[in-house]
């Protein structure tokens, strides 16, 4: 039995990391919810965000946290042509075609990362990634707290965008009934394009935060893709604030798993939970028919 402060530390870093996971999962979730697309290249968007943060720092010296908005914009700009030229032409060809196309993209990106940036494990090196923040017995790296706060702010912002804004209304209407939405005058394909870009931006910004807090490789994407699925299953598809809760729950469970079984089990805990949830309650994220 580890000491109490170790447990407490693990739980708190689980919560904080979970918040960041939730931000990345949100990208996967809104694309799935609105476009009905299983974005198998989601993990690569996340890794692309991490690389963007890394090179922003290396080339321009801009702190990645200061450049988050820029990184989000870059990812959105990358996302737009992907949607326009890879996904739009597949409309009406069934969900598998789009999913497999994103899978093709995912393996292209993965290997492009290796070719361009080598297969090395990277970390965005900032002092706040290592300097701990201490409250009595609790000590977590500063970036965990900063990343958590930024993630929560962004998640709440996306929530407000979807729940309150005029665009959000169009988005929800398009997700519910695309045909009816078009008939009352919503430009559904524009909503889809924007949603895809927003999803890519969420994944990228979350990726930068995770790239500072932890390390990453060109092939890290696959495991984040699955972790994010687990978050969506826990939080409920289409539920933005639920995603935050799902992320935190998963983060804590991963911490507990790492603490009791060993650090290597962190991701395994998430996946086992995911598979268990699927077999017990597939409607967790099967609210709509595929």
């Amino acid at each position: 039995m580890p000491a109490l402060d170790v447990i407490l530390n693990a739980l708190i870093s689980g919560v904080l990391l979970g918040g960041m996971l939730a931000l990345t999962a949100l990208g996967l979730s809104i694309i799935l919810g609105v476009l009905r697309l299983v974005n198998l290249a989601h993990g690569e968007f996340l890794v692309a965000g991490a690389y963007a943060g890394l090179f922003l720092l290396q080339w321009t010296g801009i702190d990645p946290l200061a450049g988050l908005a820029l990184i989000g914009l870059v990812l959105a700009l990358i996302g737009y042509p992907i949607h326009r030229f890879l996904l739009v032409p597949l409309a009406g060809k069934g969900p598998e075609a789009s999913m497999m196309t994103m899978f093709g993209l995912s393996i292209i990106l993965q290997n492009l990362f290796v070719l361009l940036f080598s297969a090395d494990t990277r970390a965005i090196d900032r002092s706040y990634a290592n300097v701990p923040l201490e409250f009595g017995p609790i000590s977590v790296p500063q970036i965990f707290v900063m990343g958590f706060v930024i993630s929560v702010v962004l998640i709440v912002a996306v929530h407000l965008l979807i729940a309150r804004s005029r665009f959000g209304r169009d988005l929800r209407a398009s997700a519910d009934q695309p045909q009816a939405a078009a008939i009352i005058g919503i430009n559904v394909s524009r909503v889809h394009a924007f949603t895809f870009c927003l999803g890519a931006a969420c994944a990228g910004i979350g990726g930068t935060l995770i790239g500072i807090a932890l390390s990453f490789t060109p092939t890290s994407g696959a495991s984040y893709l699955l972790t994010d699925f687990a978050v969506i299953v826990l939080g409920g598809l289409g539920n933005v604030l639920g995603t935050l809760v799902g992320g935190i729950v998963l983060g804590v469970l991963q911490s507990i798993g790492g603490l009791t079984l060993g650090d290597g089990y962190r991701d395994l805990v998430g996946l086992v939970l995911f598979l268990a949830m699927l077999s017990v309650r597939p409607q967790g994220f099967l609210g709509h028919r595929a």
Binding site: R169, A173, A175, I184, G185, G238
Partner: peptide, 16 residues
């Protein structure tokens, strides 16, 4: 009918 389930009654009207 094709009502948008995730919009409230008023939002269903306003969106049009």
């Amino acid at each position: 009918r094709r009502i948008f389930a995730s919009l409230s009654v008023e939002e269903n009207l306003e969106v049009a």
